[in-house]
Nucleic acid binder design. Structure first.
Lengths: 151, 151
DNA sequence: CTTAATTAGATTGTATACAATTTAATTTTA
DNA sequence: TAAAATTAAATTGTATACAATCTAATTAAG
């Protein structure tokens, strides 16, 4: 019965992967209204909270590396939702700033979570649990990173 | 306080998306030993359970469409883990069959879930809950699909 | 029985993802 | 302080993902 571990229905990562993709697919109609993909939306979520952020920090928040972020940020810049600028104190560093246009779409974006939420049949109890469990896992992943620089 | 809905930490999809990616990244070292990517591994999980499957059904099981599956299956065919064949009864249909070589790697693959599991700090209670909640959500997504053909 | 739908896969185009490498700037060290 | 190490982004190469379209085969309708 050791074969059980390889059954699709016993996997923990697969439902995570499938659920994530299916929900992101349901974001699409709402996000089209503000001309954003899901990944671009994640960047905007951060900027709607804090106006500006360094690229490296942004990558850490979103679990994305520069290979992913560079082209995404270029697209957001072309849409004039953000501006990119180098630090004067350290020219290696880049800062991303939200523009007025970027701030304006936030008003429309406010309706999105409710719209998408309607597509997901999830009671409050489960939603809370899901949220806590996933954030617990992510927290341990972040901790790994912190301690890996010790040796 | 209506802004709360747009805070990254209040999103339900983001931790799903981030967790899924981070865990898949942790599969990589193990999967390299059998020369598979995570998506290719998912296909093999299905075939280790049932030897052969029609492409359409495979796509439904894995929540992947032909645009994704076609190149993935081509790669698995090149590695000689699977073979592709057309139905004689209906030439539109394609069937995927696991090869002997594909069956053989299953033995090595058996160690993978435990290896990856070690990277994830998750107690049994939470793991069970996570599994149930996600599968409940996926079930409702499948139901949507069934009823959408009614109208 | 013939034309009009439907269906399964493949193809095309766009957008991620991420490992590995490169580049340029800044720090650290000998 | 000059060379070595480190750091932040960008670049390159490979592999998904998915919407939209296309193609060929099959079925349904009139």
């Amino acid at each position: 019965m050791e074969e059980e571990v390889l059954k699709l229905n016993n996997q923990i990562c697969f439902p995570l992967y499938a659920c994530s993709k299916e929900i992101i697919r349901r974001y699409k109609p709402s996000l089209e209204k503000i001309d954003l993909t899901y990944t671009q939306y994640l960047v905007m979520l951060v900027l709607w909270e804090q106006d500006e952020i360094n690229i490296k920090t942004l990558g850490e928040r979103l679990y994305l590396d520069s290979g992913t972020l560079t082209p995404v940020l270029k697209k957001l810049e072309r849409k004039e939702y953000i501006k990119k600028e180098k630090y004067k104190s350290d020219e290696r560093n880049c800062i991303i700033r939200i523009t007025e246009k970027g701030k304006k779409v936030k008003e429309i974006a406010k309706t999105i979570p409710l719209e998408v939420g309607k597509c997901i049949d999830l009671n409050i109890e489960d939603a809370k649990n899901l949220h806590r469990i996933l954030n617990d896992i992510l927290k341990t992943f972040n901790k790994e990173k912190d301690t890996s620089s010790i040796d």
